[in-house]
Computed example of a mutant assay.
Amino acid sequence: MEAAVSPFPDDADALKALLATALLRADEAEQRAASVEAELANARALASATEALIAHLKLQNAKLRREQFGPSAERTERLLAQFELRLEDLEADAAEDELAAEAAAAMTATVSAFQRRKPVRKPFPDHLPRERVVVPAPCSCPACGGGRLSKLGEDITETLEVIPRSWKVIQTVREKFACRDCEKITQPPAPFHVTPRGWAGPSFLAMLLFDKYGQHQPLHRQAERFASEGVPLSVSTLADQIGAACQALMPVFHLMEGHTFAAERLHGDDTTVPVMAKGKTVTGRLWNYVHDDRPFGGNDPPSVVFYYSRDRCGDHPRRHLTAWSGILQADAYSGYNELYAPNRQPGPILEAGCFAHARRKFFELADVEGAARKKSRGKKAPIVY
């Protein structure tokens, strides 16, 4: 029976050479794999950056078209909002893929990392406070050990930081005193509170109102965030404070209302607002009246008042403007027609057409005419015998 022949040489030097060759080939294979992985990461980063750029250009195009053809479209606002959300996700994915490409390229010597074009970041606002943190300088020269060092300058790197929201409870103490002569008890009066029983401070109320009406954050979402920060407050409790704060601010609203309707010129408009109803969403209306005389050289501070209604009945603007007369710039809504009657009391309202609304019709006519011309050019000329 013949003995099996070994595929490896018996000589030690030959074995060392064979092992070195195998290690070299393994290293080359690892380098090729790393290069392929780096190129793949670069391709992913390029695709993500390209998609984000396309979304950014689409958003810019939509905004420019909206500016050119007028903000007619409350419907385009939703489209722009969707573009914004999509762009946020794409930008985040592009940044993540770019970092992955840098990490993959660092493992190779032949593939350079993909560099995404980024917009230039604006400097931080000057009004933000600066906290200076100085890194300790060496006491001696790291190269020669000498101690004669002279400062040449400094490099400053700015990092934006935020102080998280903090909560506190203010205890207002009113001490009681008894007079030993007349035995009467005295105590300082209770401090003023914006809302009854005053458990919510003015800063908290301002934040609650601004987040609800300025940032469109419903109370249940605010309550969830408060609870996550260790301050559990029910939605009904917050709603009570909203109602009390609105009642407390009503005198301010009346002052703004009086200032607005003291103007000789007003701009009136209405916009749709979705309203939750039983099992569905209905469309409500926000009527706004703007007092701004700055384009006419006026010095009065601008103001605007809003009124809400569940429908677009013409009774609403007639009720809003029942005691006002002057020049009203508005669209061609028929609900304003009775306001333009010459014998109206307490005085006539002069209609000023809105150019932003009027020019849309010209663009529509231009589109119709352009479509008609294309259609006529597409027809074949009749054959004359």
Results as ranks from 00 to 15, higher is better:
residue 90 L to P: 09
residue 316 H to M: 02
residue 31 Q to L: 10
residue 133 V to F: 06
residue 246 C to V: 13
residue 41 A to D: 03
residue 308 Y to E: 05
residue 84 E to P: 05
residue 49 A to V: 02
residue 376 S to I: 00
residue 19 L to F: 09
residue 152 L to W: 06
residue 28 E to L: 12
residue 370 G to R: 15
residue 50 T to E: 10
residue 149 L to G: 01
residue 328 L to V: 02
residue 97 D to Q: 14
residue 40 L to M: 12
residue 144 C to Y: 03
residue 80 L to T: 01
residue 94 A to E: 00
residue 285 R to Y: 01
residue 74 E to H: 13
residue 54 I to N: 11
residue 151 K to Y: 09
residue 347 G to V: 05
residue 9 P to I: 08
residue 141 C to A: 06
residue 151 K to P: 06
residue 228 S to C: 06
residue 55 A to E: 05
residue 326 G to N: 00
residue 100 A to L: 12
residue 5 V to T: 10
residue 243 G to E: 14
residue 209 L to V: 13
residue 19 L to A: 14
residue 254 H to S: 08
residue 310 R to G: 12
residue 372 A to R: 08
residue 67 E to T: 10
residue 362 F to W: 01
residue 176 K to C: 09
residue 334 S to H: 12
residue 101 A to G: 03
residue 286 L to G: 04
residue 325 S to G: 07
residue 345 Q to W: 04
residue 46 L to H: 11
residue 16 K to R: 13
residue 83 F to A: 03
residue 344 R to A: 01
residue 36 V to K: 13
residue 115 Q to F: 12
residue 260 T to N: 06
residue 159 T to M: 03
residue 263 A to Y: 01
residue 55 A to Y: 06
residue 71 P to M: 06
residue 88 E to R: 12
residue 172 T to K: 15
residue 191 P to L: 07
residue 47 A to G: 08
residue 325 S to P: 04
residue 29 A to G: 02
residue 244 A to E: 01
residue 42 N to I: 11
residue 131 E to Y: 10
residue 58 K to V: 05
residue 29 A to Q: 15
residue 155 D to M: 09
residue 161 E to K: 05
residue 330 A to I: 04
residue 308 Y to A: 12
residue 303 S to M: 04
residue 181 D to P: 07
residue 175 E to D: 14
residue 281 T to K: 04
residue 309 S to P: 01
residue 183 E to W: 07
residue 171 Q to G: 05
residue 327 I to A: 10
residue 99 L to W: 03
residue 197 R to T: 14
residue 371 A to P: 07
residue 160 L to Y: 07
residue 353 G to H: 15
residue 99 L to V: 07
residue 69 F to H: 08
residue 374 K to V: 01
residue 169 V to E: 03
residue 294 R to I: 02
residue 260 T to M: 03
residue 347 G to H: 02
residue 305 V to Y: 06
residue 325 S to W: 00
residue 364 E to R: 05
residue 264 E to V: 11
residue 271 T to R: 09
residue 207 M to T: 14
residue 374 K to W: 06
residue 22 A to Q: 14
residue 274 P to A: 04
residue 370 G to C: 12
residue 102 E to G: 04
residue 214 G to V: 09
residue 286 L to S: 05
residue 320 H to Q: 06
residue 102 E to W: 03
residue 339 L to N: 01
residue 303 S to L: 07
residue 204 F to R: 00
residue 37 E to A: 15
residue 307 Y to G: 00
residue 26 A to Y: 08
residue 47 A to K: 14
residue 215 Q to C: 03
residue 24 L to V: 10
residue 201 G to L: 03
residue 64 L to P: 02
residue 139 C to G: 15
residue 287 W to V: 01
residue 140 S to F: 11
residue 204 F to G: 01
residue 293 D to K: 09
residue 72 S to K: 11
residue 309 S to I: 03
residue 175 E to A: 14
residue 359 R to S: 05
residue 144 C to P: 04
residue 18 L to A: 09
residue 44 R to I: 06
residue 236 S to I: 05
residue 173 V to C: 09
